[in-house]
Protein backbone atom coordinates (compact mmCIF):
# COMPACT_ATOMS: atom_id res chain seq x y z
CA UNK A 1 0.00 0.00 0.00
CA UNK A 2 2.85 2.29 0.85
CA UNK A 3 4.41 1.61 -2.52
CA UNK A 4 1.17 2.33 -4.28
CA UNK A 5 0.75 5.54 -2.32
CA UNK A 6 4.24 6.60 -3.29
CA UNK A 7 3.62 5.98 -6.95
CA UNK A 8 0.33 7.78 -7.10
CA UNK A 9 1.26 10.74 -4.95
CA UNK A 10 4.97 11.14 -5.53
CA UNK A 11 5.57 9.80 -8.98
CA UNK A 12 2.78 11.78 -10.51
CA UNK A 13 4.29 11.97 -13.98
CA UNK A 14 5.41 15.08 -15.67
CA UNK A 15 3.45 16.21 -18.69
CA UNK A 16 4.24 14.02 -21.65
CA UNK A 17 5.20 10.92 -19.68
CA UNK A 18 3.15 7.77 -19.20
CA UNK A 19 1.24 7.25 -15.95
CA UNK A 20 2.43 3.66 -16.02
CA UNK A 21 6.06 3.00 -15.26
CA UNK A 22 7.11 -0.64 -15.02
CA UNK A 23 8.37 -1.49 -11.55
CA UNK A 24 9.45 -5.07 -10.80
CA UNK A 25 7.33 -6.92 -8.27
CA UNK A 26 10.52 -7.83 -6.42
CA UNK A 27 11.46 -4.21 -5.88
CA UNK A 28 8.38 -2.07 -5.33
CA UNK A 29 8.92 1.65 -4.92
CA UNK A 30 8.82 2.84 -1.34
CA UNK A 31 9.60 6.18 0.22
CA UNK A 32 12.36 4.69 2.34
CA UNK A 33 14.05 2.95 -0.55
CA UNK A 34 14.00 6.01 -2.77
CA UNK A 35 15.47 8.10 0.05
CA UNK A 36 18.18 5.51 0.67
CA UNK A 37 18.88 5.28 -3.05
CA UNK A 38 19.30 9.04 -3.26
CA UNK A 39 21.80 9.03 -0.37
CA UNK A 40 23.74 6.19 -1.95
CA UNK A 41 23.69 7.86 -5.37
CA UNK A 42 25.67 10.80 -4.02
CA UNK A 43 27.73 8.80 -1.52
CA UNK A 44 31.43 8.84 -2.45
CA UNK A 45 32.09 5.88 -0.16
CA UNK A 46 30.83 3.85 -3.11
CA UNK A 47 34.16 4.44 -4.87
CA UNK A 48 37.34 2.72 -3.76
CA UNK A 49 39.24 5.92 -3.04
CA UNK A 50 36.23 7.89 -1.85
CA UNK A 51 36.50 10.45 -4.64
CA UNK A 52 33.51 9.58 -6.81
CA UNK A 53 29.86 8.73 -6.46
CA UNK A 54 27.25 7.79 -9.08
CA UNK A 55 26.26 11.43 -9.09
CA UNK A 56 29.78 12.50 -10.06
CA UNK A 57 29.25 11.28 -13.61
CA UNK A 58 25.46 11.55 -13.58
CA UNK A 59 25.36 15.20 -12.59
CA UNK A 60 21.83 16.51 -11.91
CA UNK A 61 22.99 19.90 -13.18
CA UNK A 62 23.64 18.35 -16.59
CA UNK A 63 20.48 16.31 -16.84
CA UNK A 64 22.37 13.44 -15.16
CA UNK A 65 25.23 13.37 -17.66
CA UNK A 66 28.81 14.64 -17.22
CA UNK A 67 29.75 16.79 -20.19
CA UNK A 68 32.74 14.57 -21.02
CA UNK A 69 33.31 12.60 -24.20
CA UNK A 70 33.94 9.41 -22.25
CA UNK A 71 33.41 8.58 -18.59
CA UNK A 72 36.23 9.08 -16.13
CA UNK A 73 36.64 6.72 -13.19
CA UNK A 74 38.77 6.81 -10.08
CA UNK A 75 42.31 8.09 -10.50
CA UNK A 76 41.14 9.83 -13.67
CA UNK A 77 41.07 6.60 -15.65
CA UNK A 78 39.17 7.12 -18.88
CA UNK A 79 36.56 4.67 -20.06
CA UNK A 80 35.68 4.06 -23.68
CA UNK A 81 32.08 5.22 -23.74
CA UNK A 82 30.06 8.34 -23.05
CA UNK A 83 28.19 8.46 -19.73
CA UNK A 84 24.57 7.56 -20.51
CA UNK A 85 21.91 10.07 -19.49
CA UNK A 86 19.87 8.73 -16.58
CA UNK A 87 16.57 10.53 -17.15
CA UNK A 88 13.40 8.48 -17.66
CA UNK A 89 15.31 5.22 -17.38
CA UNK A 90 12.41 3.81 -15.34
CA UNK A 91 10.61 3.47 -18.65
CA UNK A 92 13.55 1.63 -20.21
CA UNK A 93 13.87 -2.04 -21.02
CA UNK A 94 17.61 -2.46 -21.48
CA UNK A 95 20.56 -0.58 -20.04
CA UNK A 96 24.08 0.51 -20.98
CA UNK A 97 24.94 1.45 -24.55
CA UNK A 98 25.13 -2.22 -25.44
CA UNK A 99 22.02 -3.26 -23.50
CA UNK A 100 23.84 -5.85 -21.42
CA UNK A 101 21.74 -5.15 -18.33
CA UNK A 102 18.07 -6.05 -18.48
CA UNK A 103 17.01 -4.19 -15.34
CA UNK A 104 18.02 -1.11 -13.41
CA UNK A 105 18.77 -3.36 -10.45
CA UNK A 106 21.25 -5.32 -12.57
CA UNK A 107 22.68 -2.15 -14.05
CA UNK A 108 23.26 -0.35 -10.78
CA UNK A 109 25.96 -2.71 -9.50
CA UNK A 110 28.23 -2.75 -12.55
CA UNK A 111 29.73 0.75 -12.35
CA UNK A 112 30.39 0.26 -8.64
CA UNK A 113 32.38 -2.92 -9.27
CA UNK A 114 33.96 -1.86 -12.58
CA UNK A 115 37.73 -1.43 -11.96
CA UNK A 116 37.88 1.66 -14.17
CA UNK A 117 34.84 3.28 -12.66
CA UNK A 118 34.14 3.15 -8.90
CA UNK A 119 36.24 0.00 -8.42
CA UNK A 120 34.81 -1.42 -5.22
CA UNK A 121 34.41 -5.07 -4.43
CA UNK A 122 31.03 -6.43 -3.44
CA UNK A 123 32.38 -7.29 0.01
CA UNK A 124 33.74 -3.81 0.47
CA UNK A 125 30.48 -2.29 -0.74
CA UNK A 126 28.56 -4.25 1.87
CA UNK A 127 31.11 -3.43 4.57
CA UNK A 128 30.98 0.30 3.85
CA UNK A 129 27.23 0.60 3.52
CA UNK A 130 26.32 -2.08 6.07
CA UNK A 131 23.80 -3.24 3.50
CA UNK A 132 23.61 -6.29 1.29
CA UNK A 133 24.62 -5.46 -2.27
CA UNK A 134 21.10 -6.39 -3.40
CA UNK A 135 19.72 -3.78 -1.02
CA UNK A 136 22.08 -1.20 -2.46
CA UNK A 137 21.09 -1.93 -6.03
CA UNK A 138 17.38 -2.06 -5.15
CA UNK A 139 17.63 1.37 -3.55
CA UNK A 140 19.70 2.86 -6.36
CA UNK A 141 17.32 1.47 -8.98
CA UNK A 142 14.36 2.89 -7.06
CA UNK A 143 15.96 6.33 -6.95
CA UNK A 144 16.86 6.25 -10.64
CA UNK A 145 13.22 5.43 -11.44
CA UNK A 146 12.26 8.75 -9.92
CA UNK A 147 14.60 10.73 -12.20
CA UNK A 148 12.31 12.04 -14.89
CA UNK A 149 12.18 14.71 -17.52
CA UNK A 150 8.97 16.00 -19.06
CA UNK A 151 6.81 19.09 -19.34
CA UNK A 152 8.85 20.42 -22.25
CA UNK A 153 7.42 22.88 -24.72
CA UNK A 154 6.94 19.97 -27.08
CA UNK A 155 4.84 18.23 -24.40
CA UNK A 156 2.70 21.31 -24.00
CA UNK A 157 2.25 21.49 -27.76
CA UNK A 158 1.37 17.82 -27.79
CA UNK A 159 -1.21 18.36 -25.05
CA UNK A 160 -3.06 20.84 -27.23
CA UNK A 161 -1.26 24.13 -26.52
CA UNK A 162 -0.47 24.64 -30.18
CA UNK A 163 1.44 27.89 -29.70
CA UNK A 164 3.91 26.24 -27.33
CA UNK A 165 6.16 25.61 -30.34
CA UNK A 166 7.06 28.41 -32.69
CA UNK A 167 6.96 28.09 -36.48
CA UNK A 168 10.61 27.07 -36.78
CA UNK A 169 10.25 24.40 -34.10
CA UNK A 170 7.13 23.06 -35.80
CA UNK A 171 9.05 22.92 -39.06
CA UNK A 172 11.75 21.02 -37.18
CA UNK A 173 9.14 18.57 -35.88
CA UNK A 174 8.02 18.01 -39.46
CA UNK A 175 11.62 17.25 -40.49
CA UNK A 176 12.00 15.00 -37.45
CA UNK A 177 9.05 12.90 -38.50
CA UNK A 178 9.29 13.34 -42.24
CA UNK A 179 12.43 13.84 -44.28
CA UNK A 180 14.72 13.22 -41.33
CA UNK A 181 13.00 9.94 -40.43
CA UNK A 182 14.34 10.52 -36.89
CA UNK A 183 11.14 9.25 -35.25
CA UNK A 184 11.77 5.77 -36.58
CA UNK A 185 14.39 5.25 -33.88
CA UNK A 186 13.31 8.06 -31.54
CA UNK A 187 9.55 7.44 -31.16
CA UNK A 188 7.16 7.74 -28.27
CA UNK A 189 7.12 9.87 -25.14
CA UNK A 190 10.72 9.04 -24.33
CA UNK A 191 12.07 9.52 -27.85
CA UNK A 192 13.73 6.13 -28.01
CA UNK A 193 12.78 2.74 -29.40
CA UNK A 194 15.04 1.06 -26.80
CA UNK A 195 16.59 -0.80 -29.71
CA UNK A 196 20.13 -1.06 -31.07
CA UNK A 197 21.27 0.47 -34.33
CA UNK A 198 24.39 0.79 -36.41
CA UNK A 199 24.65 4.38 -37.60
CA UNK A 200 28.33 4.05 -38.37
CA UNK A 201 29.64 5.98 -35.37
CA UNK A 202 31.84 3.05 -34.34
CA UNK A 203 33.21 2.51 -37.87
CA UNK A 204 36.71 3.97 -38.03
CA UNK A 205 39.32 3.46 -40.71
CA UNK A 206 37.57 0.49 -42.21
CA UNK A 207 37.01 -1.36 -38.95
CA UNK A 208 34.72 -1.41 -35.96
CA UNK A 209 36.22 0.44 -33.01
CA UNK A 210 33.54 -0.92 -30.69
CA UNK A 211 31.11 -3.75 -31.49
CA UNK A 212 28.56 -2.48 -28.95
CA UNK A 213 25.57 -4.82 -28.89
CA UNK A 214 27.06 -6.61 -31.92
CA UNK A 215 28.04 -5.43 -35.39
CA UNK A 216 28.51 -1.87 -34.22
CA UNK A 217 24.99 -1.42 -32.89
CA UNK A 218 24.28 0.84 -29.92
CA UNK A 219 21.15 1.65 -28.00
CA UNK A 220 19.05 4.62 -29.08
CA UNK A 221 19.31 7.24 -26.32
CA UNK A 222 16.44 9.47 -25.25
CA UNK A 223 16.36 12.91 -26.83
CA UNK A 224 14.81 14.58 -23.81
CA UNK A 225 17.13 17.30 -22.47
CA UNK A 226 19.37 16.57 -25.45
CA UNK A 227 20.62 20.15 -25.69
CA UNK A 228 22.05 19.79 -22.16
CA UNK A 229 23.84 16.48 -22.61
CA UNK A 230 26.70 17.14 -25.05
CA UNK A 231 28.90 15.58 -26.24
CA UNK A 232 26.97 12.95 -28.17
CA UNK A 233 26.98 9.35 -29.37
CA UNK A 234 28.19 6.31 -27.47
CA UNK A 235 31.77 7.52 -27.70
CA UNK A 236 31.12 11.24 -27.26
CA UNK A 237 32.69 11.80 -30.65
CA UNK A 238 30.27 14.51 -31.76
CA UNK A 239 30.77 17.64 -29.71
CA UNK A 240 27.61 19.54 -30.53
CA UNK A 241 24.03 19.00 -31.61
CA UNK A 242 24.93 20.73 -34.86
CA UNK A 243 27.50 17.99 -35.43
CA UNK A 244 24.87 15.35 -34.78
CA UNK A 245 22.43 16.87 -37.26
CA UNK A 246 25.21 17.10 -39.84
CA UNK A 247 26.16 13.46 -39.21
CA UNK A 248 22.61 12.28 -39.93
CA UNK A 249 22.18 14.66 -42.84
CA UNK A 250 25.09 12.86 -44.48
CA UNK A 251 23.52 9.48 -43.74
CA UNK A 252 25.84 8.39 -40.94
CA UNK A 253 29.08 6.62 -41.72
CA UNK A 254 28.73 3.89 -44.37
CA UNK A 255 29.83 0.44 -43.24
CA UNK A 256 28.87 -3.14 -44.02
CA UNK A 257 26.28 -3.37 -41.24
CA UNK A 258 24.75 0.08 -41.29
CA UNK A 259 21.01 0.18 -40.60
CA UNK A 260 18.68 0.15 -43.60
CA UNK A 261 17.13 3.32 -42.22
CA UNK A 262 20.38 5.23 -42.61
CA UNK A 263 20.78 7.12 -45.86
CA UNK A 264 21.76 10.67 -46.81
CA UNK A 265 19.01 13.10 -45.92
CA UNK A 266 20.75 16.14 -47.45
CA UNK A 267 19.09 18.63 -45.14
CA UNK A 268 19.06 22.22 -46.31
CA UNK A 269 20.46 24.86 -43.99
CA UNK A 270 16.92 25.82 -43.10
CA UNK A 271 15.99 22.24 -42.27
CA UNK A 272 19.03 21.86 -40.06
CA UNK A 273 18.18 25.04 -38.22
CA UNK A 274 14.58 23.89 -37.74
CA UNK A 275 15.61 20.44 -36.55
CA UNK A 276 17.99 21.95 -34.00
CA UNK A 277 15.29 24.30 -32.77
CA UNK A 278 12.92 21.39 -32.31
CA UNK A 279 15.50 19.32 -30.43
CA UNK A 280 16.08 22.23 -28.08
CA UNK A 281 12.34 22.35 -27.40
CA UNK A 282 12.69 18.92 -25.78
CA UNK A 283 14.25 20.56 -22.74
CA UNK A 284 11.74 20.44 -19.93
CA UNK A 285 11.67 19.94 -16.19
CA UNK A 286 13.94 17.34 -14.62
CA UNK A 287 12.62 15.95 -11.38
CA UNK A 288 14.19 13.39 -9.05
CA UNK A 289 13.00 11.85 -5.81
CA UNK A 290 9.73 13.31 -4.72
Amino acid sequence: MKALLLFVLVLKPLLGLDLYMPVPDANPLTLDKVALGRRLFFDKRLSRDGTLACGSCHDPGRAFSDGLAVARGINGVQGSRNTPVLINRGYGSSFFWDGRAKSLEQQALEPILNPIELALTETELERRTKLKSTEVTAALASFVRTIRSGDSRFDRYSAGQLNALNAVEKAGLAVFRGKGNCSTCHPGPNFTDEQFHNTGVAWRDGALADAGAGKGRFKTPTLREVSRTAPYMHDGSLATLEDVVEFYSEGGRPNPNIDAEMRPRNFSAEEKRALLAFLKALTGRVREGW
Partner: peptide
Protein backbone atom coordinates in the same frame (compact mmCIF):
# COMPACT_ATOMS: atom_id res chain seq x y z
CA UNK B 1 -2.49 7.26 -32.80
CA UNK B 2 0.48 9.62 -32.88
CA UNK B 3 1.76 11.03 -36.21
CA UNK B 4 4.56 8.45 -36.31
CA UNK B 5 1.86 5.76 -35.99
CA UNK B 6 2.70 4.82 -32.43
CA UNK B 7 -0.15 4.03 -30.06
CA UNK B 8 -1.09 5.41 -26.68
CA UNK B 9 -3.75 4.35 -24.24
CA UNK B 10 -5.09 7.45 -22.51
CA UNK B 11 -7.86 8.88 -20.37
CA UNK B 12 -9.65 11.93 -21.76
CA UNK B 13 -11.41 14.21 -19.31
CA UNK B 14 -15.04 14.79 -20.32
CA UNK B 15 -14.90 18.14 -18.52
CA UNK B 16 -12.03 19.79 -20.36
CA UNK B 17 -10.52 17.26 -22.77
CA UNK B 18 -7.31 16.90 -20.74
CA UNK B 19 -5.29 13.92 -21.96
CA UNK B 20 -3.64 11.65 -19.37
CA UNK B 21 -1.53 9.08 -21.17
CA UNK B 22 -1.66 5.80 -19.33
CA UNK B 23 0.70 3.79 -21.44
CA UNK B 24 2.57 4.19 -24.70
CA UNK B 25 2.74 1.03 -26.78
CA UNK B 26 5.02 2.12 -29.58
CA UNK B 27 4.31 0.21 -32.76
Amino acid sequence: WKPENTLQLAWISVTDGEVRVLKSLGW
